[in-house]
């Protein structure tokens, strides 16, 4: 039971990080029809920015982390929107989808060529100490990660629901035409979504890197986790992405530990979230918290 609780907390911690990546992915999909296949690379890259700031310029960790978030907002938010998405959305959805796949390749190989192909350690924000809570040993680092990720999610939810800008963003996501008539500056809201996505990805990157190490090929796993989380939760809902992320994280961790019990080799751990994806698509295609979407002619 104590083991189970430890696994559950570890799972919630990674799951909350997946949720951050999935929320950004969902927001982009809703507000600008951008299905970002480079989302995994967006989470992989900011840690490299931090490594560059620390090891090439000798800056302290806290400053490097802030620089990483800043670089992510500029490059993965503003530049991505202006240089890639804006010219390509005019050509249609397929060219844009293809281009995000190409952007993913570009970032992945760019990180490999510019920095290195090896996995790098990444400093943790929180001390890696175990604390005893009612007889259960819990990692302080995991609790910290969970707290930061949940705080980011709560702040985002508050921003979307309680501020004027946030509500304008939601309006843009739901119906850009009507939003424009009502005086919402749709273009600005879409841009804000890209900036938010980049910031969330950067936070996810800084949180996940001490756990997964920093490696150029991490985007594949992280991207898949984000896609699965978004679809499992129901991609037309931000809270769907949150629930999906937590669920994928927990299932992933439990599968790693208990795979023997259900008769699956631990080398198939990666396949468990995929099985979850298939089950959801088969039995609840709109996602666990999603609504069905109507089509128009």
């Amino acid at each position: 039971m104590a083991d189970f609780l430890q696994l559950l907390i570890a799972g919630l911690a990674t799951g909350a990080i997946y949720a951050l990546a999935a929320i950004g992915f969902t927001l982009l999909w809703q507000t600008s029809q951008t299905i970002n296949f480079a989302q995994g690379e967006f989470v992989m890259l900011p840690a490299f920015f931090a490594l560059v700031a620390m090891h090439w310029f000798g800056l302290p960790f806290w400053l490097s982390a802030l620089i990483a978030i800043g670089c992510a907002v500029i490059l993965l938010g503003l530049v991505f929107k202006l240089v890639i998405v804006d010219p390509l959305i005019r050509q249609g959805v397929l060219p844009l989808v293809i281009s995000t796949i190409a952007v993913g390749l570009l970032l992945k190989d760019g990180a490999k060529e510019a920095y290195s192909a090896e996995a790098h350690r990444f400093p943790s924000i929180f001390p890696d100490r175990l604390v005893d809570v009612l007889g259960v040993k819990i990692s302080l680092a995991q609790l910290g990660v969970l707290a930061v990720a949940l705080a980011a999610i709560a702040a985002l939810q508050w921003f979307l629901a309680a501020t004027s800008t946030g509500r304008q963003m939601q309006a843009t996501a739901q119906n850009p035409g009507v939003a424009r008539i009502l005086g919402v500056r749709v273009e600005r809201m879409v841009m804000l979504t890209f900036v938010l996505n980049a910031a969330l990805a950067a936070v996810a990157s800084l949180l996940i890197s001490p756990i997964y190490l920093v490696k150029f090929s991490n985007g594949e796993t992280l991207g898949l986790a984000a896609f699965v989380a978004a679809i499992v939760g129901g991609f037309n809902q931000v809270r769907g992405a949150i629930a999906g992320g937590l669920l994928v994280g927990v299932i992933d961790n439990l599968a790693g530990a208990y795979s023997g019990l259900i008769g699956v080799s631990s080398s198939y751990r990666q396949a468990v979230p995929l099985a979850l994806l298939v089950l959801v698509i088969l039995f609840r295609p709109q996602g666990l918290l999603g609504r069905r979407e109507e089509r128009s002619v």
């Binding site: 890639i84 190409a102 190989d109």
Partner: peptide, 20 residues
Amino acid sequence: ESYYLLIYAALVILMMAFCP
């Protein structure tokens, strides 16, 4: 050599932008 994929990916994006 190793820059091949970078060049290829950049070409794909240009191609999609100007001649889908």
